Amino acid sequence: MSDPYGGQPYNPHWQGGRPPGQWQQPPQQQWQQPAPAHGGYAPGGHGGYEPSPAADLPLAPIYRRAAARLMDNALVAVFGFALVLPIAFGVIGLDAPGSKTRTEGGVWNWPIITTLFVVLAILPFLYEAIQLSMWGQTLGKRMLGMSVVRVDPAGDPLPATQAVWRAAINNIGYQLGLFFFLILAVKVWEYAAYGLLLVTIGMVMAYLWAIWDQPLHQAMHDRFADTVVVDDRFGDEDDHYDYDQ
C-alpha cells in the first residue's frame, strides 16, 4: 500500500489539502443526561444540580414529625384497646371460665393476634386515611403545625386516593411483615421470632430514612406515595421575626 504522505512523517500543520481519510476523526457527540424523576436532581448547565420544585417547599422538621407520629400512635392505641378489647372479651368469650381460647396457645391465641392487628394496623389506617383525605393532616400534625402535600404538582393537597394509599403503606403495609412472623413464631416455628426483629428494624429504618433523604426528607411511605410533609408554621414564624425586628 502506498504511503499517502510520500514517506514523510505526519505533519499536523500540513497544507497540502484535505488530510487522508484515516486521519479524520469523527465528530464528537454531546452526551445528554436523561431527565430525572421528580424529587431528584438533574445536572445543571454550569456543572451544578437543579432541585425538584418540591424542594422549595418549607419542609417540616424531623423532630416535630416524630413527635406528631408518637402522638397519633398513642392516641389510636389508647382508644383502640379501650374499644376493641371489651368487644373481643365479650363476643369471643376470652373472659368466660373454661373458654378454649383462654387456654389454647397460651396468650398468643387467634383472638389476641386479631385484636392486636385491628388496633395496631386497621384503626391507625382508618384514622390516618380519613383525616389526610379531608384535611391533609392528622390530629398530631395539626397540633404541631404540619401538613402532607403532593410532590407533583408541588404543594398541592392530597386527593383521597393518594391519602388512602399513603395511610395503607404507613400502617397496614409495615405491619403485615410483623404479624406474619409473629404468627409463624407462635404457631409454627419459634425461631421465626428472629424475623420479628428484622422486620422491626426495617420499620424503624423506614421512618429514619427521612433524616438523610435528599432533597425532600421523605420517609419510605412518603416516597412510595409521592408525598412530602411541610411546615405550616413557616409563614407565621417569618411574620413574627419581621415584627420583632
Results as ranks from 00 to 15, higher is better:
Y49H: 14
P43C: 13
T161E: 05
H38L: 11
P157D: 10
P159Y: 05
R166V: 03
P34W: 06
L70E: 01
L57F: 09
G90C: 03
I211G: 03
G45N: 15
P26K: 10
P36A: 11
T161N: 07
L178G: 12
A55C: 09
V148T: 02
G155P: 01
M146Y: 08
D152R: 11
R102N: 15
L158W: 01
L126K: 03
P86Q: 08
V186N: 00
R69V: 05
T227N: 03
Y41H: 14
P9Q: 08
N11E: 02
S133T: 12
G39D: 06
T114H: 00
R223W: 07
A74E: 05
Y5T: 07
L83V: 03
M71S: 07
G47K: 05
Y243D: 11
D239W: 09
P97I: 13
V91M: 09
T200G: 11
G7C: 12
H46M: 14
P124W: 00
A129T: 10
D72H: 03
G45H: 14
Q218W: 04
A167L: 06
Q33M: 14
G45Y: 14
A82G: 13
V149I: 04
V228H: 00
A82F: 15
G16L: 10
W110C: 07
P111D: 04
Y207W: 06
G93P: 05
A55W: 03
I87K: 08
Q175I: 04
L144I: 01
N171M: 01
P159L: 01
D231P: 02
V199S: 12
P58M: 04
V199I: 15
F224Y: 04
T138P: 01
T200M: 08
Q24E: 11
Q32C: 05
G145K: 05
A74W: 08
V228K: 04
P153E: 05
P159H: 05
L116F: 09
L196M: 13
V228C: 00
P26I: 06
P43E: 13
W23N: 06
L75E: 06
V91K: 09
L176M: 13
G177V: 13
W108S: 08
L176G: 03
P26W: 10
I172K: 04
D152T: 12
N73D: 10
A74M: 08
G44W: 11
G21Q: 15
Y5H: 12
F117D: 02
I169M: 10
A67K: 05
D226M: 14
P20H: 11
Q8M: 12
P124E: 05
G105T: 00
M220D: 00
V91T: 09
A206F: 03
H13C: 06
F224W: 07
R166D: 02
I169K: 00
Y207I: 06
L94F: 07
P9Y: 06
M1C: 15
V204R: 11
G40R: 14
G98W: 09
